[in-house]
């Protein structure tokens, strides 16, 4: 990506750095982990996978850890509950907290008190709602920034949720290998649908950005042809969409699904999800303040 010189600050397109450079990269990890954790929990709750729900909680804890590294004053993290009226970070913090509590209760009940079905269902639904909220708020936090036209899109929260859900489904598929054939087939079908949806929404998002605004168009051009182009094409397009989609479609037409192929799809899908958050944050640029450009 073109590096703006100090005297070009806000005279030319200026890249946002706070949320991607240095310690800021951990916000990309946090958003990725939040999305995939929420997606995995929703999928695991539907398929009654206690292990899946447990991994989702671990991923959410990792998200919190990643957030803490990003914060300048991590010991004051508890103050982030103060402004849910207007701040998406504050809302997100509350969602993560409630999701964590309800998800832990669900896993404890499902593991040690399986006969308490009413309670399990209740907490599972509550945790599922906040898992979805955790997954989508990262998109809203980013899209709320009206100054960065690439981000300021209503499609972004949907893209983040679909990406998180497809990653979550992939992990669930990976940990369910060797289980019931019919359940595996259903998981594979859902994964195929979410992957196709993800590819379509990603295309629509980028296409929409190219005619939305000049700075958004410039950001898309940087994403596809600048220094982050390799991460976009290899990470997002090839690893995140084409390979898992190819494997999913390939296994649909073959008689038996290959374990090695499915694990490959899971890994590439996860890398693709992370690459997506990274390139979107990295490609965020501000419109110049002067008329010089």
């Amino acid at each position: 990506m073109y590096q703006t010189k100090p005297y070009e600050y806000m005279v030319k397109y200026t890249q946002q750095k706070s949320w991607i450079d240095g310690r800021g990269v951990f916000i990309a990890f946090a958003f990725f982990l939040g999305g995939i954790s929420g997606g995995l929990f929703m999928a695991a709750a539907y398929f009654n996978s206690v292990l899946g729900m447990f991994i989702a909680i671990c991923l959410s804890a990792l998200m919190g850890f990643s957030y803490m590294i990003h914060l300048g004053q991590p010991m004051l993290f508890w103050r982030m509950v103060s402004k849910p009226q207007t701040s998406w970070i504050s809302r997100g913090f509350i969602f993560i907290f409630l999701y964590g509590i309800f998800a832990i209760i669900t896993v404890i009940l499902a593991q040690w008190f399986p006969e308490a079905t009413a309670a399990i269902t209740t907490f599972k639904v509550l945790a599922g709602i906040f898992a979805f909220a955790q997954s989508i708020y990262t998109g809203f936090a980013v899209s709320y920034v009206s100054a960065i036209k690439l981000w300021n899109s209503a499609i972004l929260p949907i893209l983040f949720v679909i990406c998180g859900f497809s990653g979550g489904m992939a992990i669930l598929l990976g940990i369910s290998l060797g289980g019931s054939e019919s359940q595996l087939a259903l998981m594979e079908n859902i994964t195929r649908i979410t992957l196709i949806t993800f590819a379509v929404i990603l295309t629509v998002y980028l296409w929409n950005a190219t005619y939305n605004n000049v700075s958004a168009r410039d950001a898309v051009a940087r994403m596809m042809g600048g220094s982050i182009a390799a991460i976009f094409w290899v990470g997002v397009v090839v690893l995140g969409v084409l390979i898992p989609l190819g494997i999913s479609v390939g296994t649909y037409f073959s008689d038996a699904s290959s374990t090695a192929l499915i694990i490959t799809a899971v890994v590439t899908e996860i890398i693709g999800g992370l690459a997506l958050r990274y390139v979107i944050l990295k490609a965020g640029i501000y419109t110049p303040l002067t008329a010089g450009e």
Binding site: L71, G72, R79
Partner: peptide, 22 residues
């Protein structure tokens, strides 16, 4: 004393008038 240093305000300012003191 209240700021947690999340950087959201830096990102959100359309005029880019905030800088993180590192």
């Amino acid at each position: 004393d209240k700021c947690v240093g999340c950087g959201y305000c830096i990102v959100a300012c359309p005029y880019q008038q905030r800088t993180r003191f590192e």
